[in-house]
């Protein structure tokens, strides 16, 4: 499946279908990136609870 949009000479139907697929994929990607950010947030607080993990 291409990550690019449907070509300009494609039909309206094909373009709408491509749009739906693309937006669904964008939402999934956004969710994963949000989870990554949340993981960093929680992870650094957990690291903070373990004294002495950083040099100095």
């Amino acid at each position: 499946m291409s990550y690019a949009m449907a070509p300009a000479n494609g039909s309206d139907e094909r373009r709408d279908e491509g749009n739906d697929q693309r937006r669904a994929r964008a939402r999934r990607n956004a969710l994963l990136l949000g989870l990554l950010a949340a993981g960093f947030y929680v992870g650094f607080i957990l690291l903070g609870a373990l004294k002495g993990i950083f040099p100095g």
Binding site: A4, M5, R25, A26, N29, L33
Partner: peptide
Amino acid sequence: SIMAAINIIVTIMNMRAPGM
């Protein structure tokens, strides 16, 4: 900032014109 960053990434990864 995080929400803006997520939006920019998913836009660039999913919304590029054909051939871009």
